[in-house]
Design a binder for these strands. Structure first.
Lengths: 146, 146
DNA sequence: CTTGTTGCAAAGGATTTGCACGGCT
DNA sequence: AGCCGTGCAAATCCTTTGCAACAAG
């Protein structure tokens, strides 16, 4: 289950980068922590956990994890870059409640397939995509009506 | 054809905001100018056109146009907020070339419909969505192979 | 030992805001 | 006249970077 750790170390070696305690700490908490942290939030989270890492190192390491394919940037449109685990995770889209900001990861094969078709219609070869669905979750709907 | 202008003025009146020359200038060039300006780019564009408006006013007015439903924010994931005309424009998604950054506005009814279905599966009521497709356009593909 | 890494603080880019002045209504 | 809008510059937010001390290979 420490697959991500070995992938990371492998990545570091292959790029003559160094395996440091900070990097391991960040990876560990990143895998354990809640989803969709921004760099700043994640830094705060580490401090609460009593870990001593500089903010710049957090930013730098999160980018590193992205290069290694362990993390992925996500972007909900509020101008803040968030990160999610991207290793051993299939692709998914985001379904976000506009009221409580609950964030579900969803997937629909038909939509995925149609995107390829749509891109092909314009001669494009699709490499990736981001789909954000905004709505009201069932809980907020019932709250709103009461 | 000056529909947007009347909508804007109407919006201003209804919210006891003022109809100023700057606001009209910004609206005019916004409607005429190229798509997907960032606030900064648009500000530069105005200066080149010889218009004298402050940068802060550009930022403020673009947000105002969004509230009035004339503009819409778009967000390609590079941390810069861009604006597109959102009045009298049907909804569309974005197909972006990763090499030349060409940006097509595309639409597929089947995908739109499936999104509703997908959201409903989780009990959500969809209010909006953003879909960004990233790929390589036909021109860049042929360039790359040569 | 050589090179990459860290942490701090300063720099940076994008956007917002405080304030005094000027212009709508 | 009163209130909103403007423009400037300063402030803010998020993120990156320079640099000197330090640690990994």
């Amino acid at each position: 289950m420490n697959d991500a750790l070995s992938v990371f170390i492998e990545y570091l070696h292959q790029n003559s980068l160094k395996d440091t305690p900070q990097r391991r700490v960040i990876l560990k908490h990143f895998l354990e922590g809640s989803e969709h942290y921004s760099a700043e939030e994640f830094y705060q989270y580490l401090r609460e956990k009593g870990e001593e890492v500089g903010q710049a190192t957090v930013y730098r390491t999160l980018k590193l994890l992205c290069s290694a394919g362990i993390a992925k940037e996500v972007n909900f449109g509020d101008g803040i870059t968030r990160f999610e685990v991207g290793y051993g995770n299939e692709h998914h889209d985001h379904l976000i409640c506009e009221l409580c900001h609950e964030n579900l990861e969803v997937l629909d094969e038909d939509i995925e397939a149609l995107q390829q078709v749509l891109a092909a219609r314009y001669g494009y070869t699709l490499t990736s995509h981001r789909l954000y669905l905004y709505g009201i979750c069932p809980r907020c709907k019932s709250k709103a009506s009461s």
